[in-house]
Design a protein around this nucleic acid. Sequence first.
RNA 1: GGGUGGUUAGCUCAGUUGGUUAGAGCGCCUGCUUUACACGCAGGAGGCCGGAGGUUCGAGUCCUCCACCGCCCACCA
Length: 904
Amino acid sequence: MAIDSSHDMPRAYNAADVERRIYDTWLSAGYFAANRDPGGGTPFTIIMPPPNVTGELHLGHALEKALEDALVRWRRMCGVPTLWLPGTDHAGIATQWVVEQQLAAQGQSRHELGREKFLELVWQHVERSGGIIHEQSRRLGISADWDRHKFTLDPGPAKAVRTTFVNLYNKGLIYRHERIINWCPRCATALSDLEVDYQEQPGRLYYIRYPLEDPSSVPDGTPKHITVATTRPETMLGDTGVAVHGDDPRYRELVGKLVLLPLTDRVIPIVADEAITPEFGTGALKVTPGHDMLDFEIGERHQLEIVTVVGFDGNMTEHAGKYAGTERFRARDEVAAELESLGFLEKTEEYQHSVGCCQRCNAVVEPLITQQWFVNVGSHEQPDSIAGKAYAAVVDGRIKLVPERFTRVYLNWLENIRDWCISRQLWWGHRIPVWYCDDCGQQTAAVEDPDGCAACGSPRLQQDNDVLDTWFSSGLWPHSTLGWPDDSDDFKYFYPTSVLETGYDILFFWVARMIMLGIENTGDVPFRTVFLHGMVRDASGAKMSKTRGNTMDPLELVDRYGTDALRFALTTGAAPGSDIRLGESRLESARNFANKVWNAARFVITSLRGADNLDGWFDGRVSRHREDLWIIGRLNRTINDVNRSLESFELGEAQQKLYDFIWNDFCDWYIEMAKIRLRSGSQPSPLPTLAHVLERTLRLLHPFMPFITEEIWQNLLEQLPTEGDLPASIMVASYPKADETSQDTEAEGEISLVMQAIRAVRNTRAQLRIPANEQLEAIVEANGFQKAIEEEAEVIRSLSRINPLRVTSASDTGEHPRGITLVVNPLVVRLPLEGVVDLGEETERLRKELDDCQRNLDRVSALVSNPAFRAKAKPEVVENEEERLKSLEERRQRLNEILEQLES
RNA sequence: GGGUGGUUAGCUCAGUUGGUUAGAGCGCCUGCUUUACACGCAGGAGGCCGGAGGUUCGAGUCCUCCACCGCCCACCA
């Protein structure tokens, strides 16, 4: 690997200059390629959620890729064989919709073109815009294994799709059936339940009177008609019944009677059904099994006829009599008007209700009865069903959701799941691998296009016209990308994958389907952990959308702030699964941090030039200087924190810890202190420690800010003697592990005292408005810390502008045995210093805490072991107390450990 | 209707098994061209941790109830 960094580091970090150059060297060095290493332990695998092949990158993608890249780079640096497999999705309805819009602009429709011609156009569109998303992904610096890239329509995934379909078909778990489904008249296709968005819309409730066929059949005094309330009067032409609740006293006499359906010559029955809410409207529901989900179910229960009055094109059908051909919403007004003129319309009311709309084109969905293909997923209560297995995998912990709260959301969805409608009346996608025989009418389902009918052998076969729901192929993604159903090495080695990282908005669409189909096909879970991120919102918290016009283009942000800054801004200080507001100030702050890192590095690297002795810089343990011991201790605590946070997917937390360490501990204090020794040339030199801390910090930061850390790494390497593990690229350097023995409480206490003194002087100076460049006289009463303060006197002098500074051992043993006395003529100010951890006091405090803990423990354990309590109290109370006992015991143990350590 | 998340500084948010004096970024106020950095440095103001109870030696953190705000799911015509 050769990166050209042989130039002086500029004063300000310029992201644009370095990013592409660095990415290309990574790429050509082959660092992204995953290697199967049977001796390398369990691999770490992430399959990238495939974006729409013709789509463009939005901030959600940027967030997703930043998180995944960080996890992947981290694991790779930990020495784990790591695979991050990228891909793209053909996105059936979305892509077809775009091309159809283009056609429409030329006044054409796909039907005029025909299937073959149209698909050619779609492929052209894919080829034209298909590369954009890759180019964009690269600019984000993502370290995915591009050679393993997969597209959902590639031969491999396509074979997986057909194999899955045929297997399920042969098991009887895929079936074709006439059922009521959500139909989008504009897209002219069926939609799954998930593809329908419900929107609150103002509407009107129409009260329509249906007269009894035989008024004499009810006792005098009862109404001779029944009034129904509906928001869709046009569908009354397809009514085949009226339903009331069986217990409704108003209608008891009417159940079983017949009514005349206005505007038609039909007579329909009144039935009693549990699903009716007597309080709603009139308590009587007109039943249109052909155009409403609930009505369809009621119709099934009472064997009501089905009359379809709205067609696939959204116009009224021939069953709508004189309204045939009328557009459905116009028919609504016309039917209402006619009902009114004939005296059947009792009244109308304003009514706010939710209307199902097509997620893609926003047209109002029409429930219609059609032949569709379904997957029988069973129910969570059937352990052998698809849903049952997907349920169990999460319940028994084989799959963990992060954050955990989504577990319940997931389970709740499965508890109410219904069969999955997988056919779409589109052309762009995986065509359903079923053929119908012209001769015998039998179906043939096959992985390879069949030569003849499976039943009669006739070659006269017609393939089903429909394609599969896009989510059917994405549901196979973790195993279809790795080579399943073939017995591939990648599949054997990398499956089940480790982490599936995606937005919580597609938990049902995609994650649940992958779990269902993954277990079905492979017998194993597709991934161990589902790591969910939140939605990126604008600065005011609104969802970003093109129609709102509040979207931000990630690439534009990359241009302005740099990739590292964008990634840092997106992923820092946000808890897993919660939404993120991204505004300019967040980005600026991230860019400033990058610049801070750059300049700290620039200082260290410049200082290292020509240094003659850096011995021991690599392990950072040679210097016994308290400043060095202090920063090494802080560094290792940070390493520990960062690793721990990463283990639990708290990436934002990890970055926050790094930010604080770099900016506060390293830059504001350690570098400032080190400058003094550098200037005076006093020994031991801080240079080995500066080098060590910078080097380790870069490694720690690399998964989050890959470009800047690599650029600095290259500059740093030139100044460092080869020692230890120093690869040519930081990408392949090892991730730091904390050295637990590096904490030095003595140095920590002493430095803390020094910092206290400096802060106290600065503070007083600001309050008394003493100019920063005016030297003051001061005396430090160091009481027990004379040696340390004397040795650090130059630091105190320089950082707080004190001269002369004297150190005494004060005899004062009052409340504040230590302090600093400032001489500000004519004032003398004594500032107490308390920033020292007094081991005696600390021990005493811990003892007291331990006593309290023990007292509590005794009480709770007495309670828990009391048979009377166990017999009387509620089980959950007992359980609570038992848990309390356990946590108290843990706490006692921990306190004991700390005390032991302090005393030794 | 059923779930679920939130309510902490002026704004946006962290706060991991309860533990000394509750943090950050941005904004605000006061000073600073201190030879790494003005994308900076130093200092400062600003919090009844939504409300009410409870458990505990100790609660922002655990329990109960309440109030707003948000999201998801659902076949109320």
